[in-house]
Computed example of a mutant assay.
Amino acid sequence: MPIARLTTVAWSLSAVAVGMLLVGCSASVSVGNSEPKLSSDKLATTVSEKLAGTTGRPKPDITCPEDLVGKVGTTTRCTLTAKDGSTLGVSVKVTSVDGKQINFDIKADDTASPAPN
């Protein structure tokens, strides 16, 4: 039975990875403070909504470890966690800042990491 489980997990990860490979999208948010910065929670929500809108799938569970500073070229890494516990890295890069509006690109990694045992 371990082989069947491995095959199922591998297939599940492949499905997640393929779905995310199609994701290369952009987002834009306005922030209300004097220094343009997007909180990690708001960033995670925005990335989740954008990925769901792009893939046509339910909003994924996204966590982002840090706030996104509104400075062109700034990057951060978020993590998408699938229902089976597998994870996929998601890169976020600031492309432009217009006043208090931060524009950024979102790109999911090509391969997922399996769920911990």
Rank of each mutant, 00 (worst) to 15 (best):
D110L: 12
K50N: 11
V31R: 00
G32I: 06
T74D: 07
S113T: 13
A4D: 13
S28A: 05
T95H: 04
A27N: 11
G24V: 13
C25I: 09
G24I: 13
T74G: 03
A15R: 06
D67I: 01
N103P: 00
R77S: 12
S30Y: 07
C78V: 08
R5D: 13
W11H: 11
P2G: 07
N117W: 07
S86W: 02
S26C: 14
K83M: 10
A10R: 08
D105A: 15
V97G: 04
T75H: 13
G53R: 07
E35R: 07
D61I: 09
E35Q: 05
T81Y: 04
N117L: 07
G85L: 10
A52N: 10
S86Y: 06
D110T: 04
T7I: 14
A27S: 13
T75I: 15
P60F: 03
T111R: 07
K83N: 14
S96M: 02
K100I: 03
T54K: 13
S48H: 04
T63D: 08
V69I: 15
T63N: 08
L38F: 05
T79A: 05
D41G: 10
M20K: 03
K83F: 11
D98M: 06
V29Q: 01
L6M: 08
V23A: 07
E35I: 11
K71V: 14
L38A: 04
S39D: 11
V90K: 02
P60T: 05
V69Y: 10
L38S: 02
T81P: 01
V69F: 15
A82H: 05
K83W: 08
S86G: 12
S39T: 14
N117K: 09
P36H: 03
V90A: 05
K83P: 07
K59V: 12
L88P: 00
C64Q: 04
V97D: 07
L6N: 03
A44D: 04
D67R: 08
L21S: 15
T79S: 05
S91H: 11
T111A: 11
G53W: 05
A112K: 00
D98T: 09
A82T: 01
M1H: 14
C78H: 08
E66R: 15
S40M: 11
S48C: 09
A115N: 05
K42E: 10
K42G: 04
G32R: 10
P2S: 06
T46I: 03
G99Y: 05
S34C: 10
T111Q: 09
T76R: 08
